[in-house]
Design a protein around this nucleic acid. Structure first.
Length: 779
DNA sequence: TCGAAGACTTGGAAGAATCTTA
DNA sequence: TAAGATTCTTCCAAGTCTTCGA
């Protein structure tokens, strides 16, 4: 590492305010103490250091299991589609060639060895670790053109075999820390983190009830008005018109692409219906959807008017109806299903300037759906009369229960188990263990990429700079995108137009990242990185890629040489978690729980800013801030009045004195009032001047009120500040995806903060595996 | 070898549920 | 008790990354 701005080992937190965020690099250079894991540090330590012995043992066990499982698999093939059978056989063959078994452990270890072999052979070819040759690839602009064909082969009906290797399977067993030494059985038998987990085979038995379809469309008979004439549409066209009408008051309909795509698809539907009047619809501009919109609003209002008891009854009935779809049995355990509902038809909204926005997303039919279920268990009957499932498969190497193709993006949609399931939990756990493993390699990696800034090989220089930015700024890697996707970028796909160089070493990044969220950051970077990066744009046009000699896959291949299983996204997890871990160390023990929570959220906010997790400004933000300011001003006025009264009382030997409180009138809402009248009444109350109310108070009473008033002012000021600070920052995303929950659990234990204050119910379930973390846990 | 398939994670918005305040 | 605010959950789009197969 160099000694200038990048020399501290922490990622650079995005600078919204210049005074903020420069963090120290404490602890990063030191060797991680692996001893502390959830519940049993000793076990964790053994897993970390004694992997060879364990690995050998597992390999033997795995070979045995492999034999049994291979037999089981081959039995299964008969009922599987051909592609699945082939897939499984190919996997088996490859594993055998590598001298490993089918069981996850062995399979994983073979993978690890393969990684090492690749790394070694590349080292032989390229010299030690640095300045390695990188295969030159075609320019990104050429590639962009090529990507236009993306998805076309799928449309042609090209079939591929199921892959059956997931993230979980890819993670080494070394990386999975066994959490407890005790192997006592838990009551519900759901403690997967105590069990020995296979990798490749995800389940032995799987039972579920399939998917829930959205209700069939019920025509409302409200006409579309075209050029002043009512047109009563056929049900199919009416449904599509209603999708559009529902969006009338949104920003979507302001977008030309949205309107164009919608009208194109709408016309196709109309043509198919062959209704003579509807065929006269030639331009969207002459279509008036207002009557349909009014109808939808009236329906909403009706729904709102339903008495609470009736609402409750409806809710309970619905719960009963969907109940069976919400759970699946996996290896004898009951697990919640996450998204058992088939996505309803509608207009594709997309995010940002999506070229397909407004297109009609078709209704998914049972024939479009592939059900994945255990063999020898009943296949759920197709719930729609006259239909049948597209395919039934028994692929136990994947974790999804059902899948279908999306009619817009041509991508796959899946039905998964819920976030609290063992599948997801194991995957999460493995993800954080991998990020922790990076801690042991990060110094070496940083040293290597810093040295790479000087490489004679341009491709190596590009790779080094890109990695530096990914590490330092927590950028996403930035895969190539197709023409039919929004134009968003990540690190590798940054173009000249996305950066500005301000000498001596400041770079201004301004681009649209995932979900078309703007990433804007002016940041001082390492001087050598700055100079090197600047050379990449020489002679290039704005729309050309900065890293023209770097691909995501070459970068990830390189990362795997540095650490098994390492990919670009691990840096984001690592930097988010290590940042929180470090920031939380400065918690004050003596503070109240409320203040500790405020502190936690502040640190969470720092991570959210680092990861650029933004949200749009809440609609009511301005009004809420104004309300808070009014409250604060009233509280301050009241405090001054109380202080005046106290002075008065003191001069009269503590006697009762009169103080005047300004009380804002409350709106008088009557049951018979409608929404409009209520709103008017509220407005009236808000606009009227406060009433002066006289109160008599003695000295003690005044003193008590002054103390309470001061406390209220402090609280209101803090509330206002927090609200403003977090107005465009989304805290949830980092909490759910990037922050190792064990850091939070350990912190809560250390500082006696109830964990329920930090994790909502669903997060407590999702992170059940982390709940026994001991308080000394360090990421 | 490389583009695409396929499987999984990550992400913000919207709506529902719950809590707080007056 | 109702309204408003906040929190939680659901939805589905949009990423990442590995493996497949022409």
């Amino acid at each position: 590492m160099t000694s200038d701005s990048d020399s501290d080992d922490v990622p650079l937190i995005r600078k919204r305010r210049k005074s903020e965020h420069m963090l120290d690099g404490e602890g990063l250079g030191t060797k991680r103490e692996r001893s502390v894991s959830v519940g049993n540090g000793e076990e964790d330590r053994r897993m970390g250091s004694g992997t060879d012995v364990l690995e050998k043992k597992r390999t033997e066990e795995g070979l045995q299991r492999k034999k049994v499982k291979k037999e089981e698999e081959e039995e299964d093939f008969e009922d599987q589609p051909r592609s699945v059978i082939r897939s499984t056989l190919v996997h088996g063959k490859k594993e055998d060639a590598g001298g490993s078994g089918v069981n996850g452990t062995v399979n994983r270890s073979s993978r690890g060895r393969k990684d090492v072999r690749i790394a070694e052979s590349r080292k032989k070819q390229n010299g030690v670790g640095k300045d390695k040759a990188i295969t030159k690839k075609p320019s990104k602009i050429q590639e962009r053109k090529k990507t236009q064909t993306k998805g076309k082969s799928a449309q042609k009906g090209k079939k591929r075999k199921p892959r059956g290797v997931s993230q979980v399977a890819k993670v080494s067993k070394n990386e999975r820390v066994k959490i407890r030494e005790s192997d006592e059985e838990d009551d519900d038998g759901m403690r997967w983190w105590d069990a020995d987990q296979g990798d490749e085979i995800k389940w032995s038995t799987l039972e579920h009830h399939g998917v829930l379809f959205p209700p069939a469309y019920k025509p409302h008979g409200v006409p579309l008005v075209y050029d002043g004439h009512e047109i009563f549409l056929d049900p199919v066209s009416e449904e599509v018109a209603t999708f559009y009408a529902a969006k009338l008051e949104t920003d979507y309909v302001q977008k030309a692409t949205f309107r164009k795509n919608f009208f194109h698809d709408f016309q196709r539907v109309l043509k198919k219906a062959k209704e003579p009047l509807a065929l006269k619809i030639k331009t969207l501009e002459k279509c008036d959807f207002k009557r349909i919109w009014d109808h939808l609003e009236a329906e909403k209002a009706k729904k709102k008017e339903i008495p609470p008891a009736e609402k409750k009854r409806i809710r309970e009935e619905e719960q009963e109806r969907i109940k069976k779809y919400t759970v699946a049995m996996v290896d004898g355990r009951e697990e919640k299903v996450g998204n058992f509902r088939v996505e309803p038809p509608g207009l594709f909204l997309g995010r940002g300037e999506h070229p397909l926005a407004g297109k009609l997303k078709k209704r998914v039919k049972p024939e479009d759906i592939t059900i994945n279920i255990g063999k020898n268990v009943p296949v759920p009957p197709c719930p729609l009369d006259g239909h049948k499932w597209g395919r039934i498969i028994h692929n136990n190497k994947v974790t999804w229960l059902a899948t279908w193709k999306d009619s817009i993006t041509n991508g796959f949609k899946y039905v998964w188990l819920g976030a609290g399931s063992a599948f997801k939990g194991m995957s999460d756990h493995a993800k954080f263990e991998k990020a922790r493993m990076l801690k042991d390699h990060i110094d070496k990696i940083r040293k290597e990429y810093t040295e790479g800034f000087d490489s004679k090989n341009r491709a190596v220089r590009q790779r080094s700079i890109a990695l530096y930015l990914i590490d330092k700024l927590a950028l996403r890697v930035g895969n190539e995108k197709g023409e039919d996707e929004a134009d968003t970028v990540g690190c590798c796909s940054l173009r000249v137009e996305h950066v500005k160089f301000n000498d001596p070493q400041t770079v201004e990044f301004d681009f649209l990242g995932k979900d078309s969220i703007r990433y804007y950051n002016t940041v001082e970077i390492d001087r050598k990185a700055y100079v090197t990066m600047k050379t990449f744009i020489v002679g290039k046009k704005n729309e050309e890629n900065i890293f023209d000699e770097l691909t995501v896959s070459s970068l990830n291949d390189y990362l795997k040489e540095l650490m098994p299983g390492l990919s670009a996204k691990v840096f984001r997890t690592y930097n988010a978690s290590i940042t929180l871990d470090r920031l939380l160390t400065s918690t004050t023990t003596k503070d109240t729980v409320v203040n500790k929570l405020v502190f936690y959220n502040q640190q969470n906010k720092e991570v959210a800013i680092l990861c650029n997790h933004q949200r749009s400004l809440p609609k009511a933000h301005g009004a809420q801030m104004e309300k808070l300011s009014t409250k604060l001003n009233d509280a301050k006025k009241w405090l001054r009045e109380l202080q005046r009264g106290l002075k008065d009382s003191k001069s009269k030997g503590g006697e009762a004195v009169t103080v005047i409180q300004l009380v804002r009138p409350k709106p008088v809402i009557k049951a018979e009032m409608n929404e409009k009248q209520r709103a008017e009444e509220r407005q009236k109350a808000e606009n009227s001047s406060p009433e002066k109310v006289e109160r008599r108070m003695k000295r003690e009473q005044l003193e008590r009120n002054i103390a309470a008033s001061k406390e209220k002012i402090v609280k209101l000021e803090a509330e206002r500040q927090t609200k403003d600070d977090l107005k465009t920052v989304a805290l949830g995303t980092s909490k759910i995806n990037y922050l190792d929950p064990r850091i939070t659990v350990a912190w809560c234990k250390r500082f006696e903060v109830p964990i329920e204050k930090v994790f909502a119910k669903t997060l407590l379930t999702k992170f059940a595996w982390a709940m026994e973390t001991i308080e000394s846990f360090k990421f």
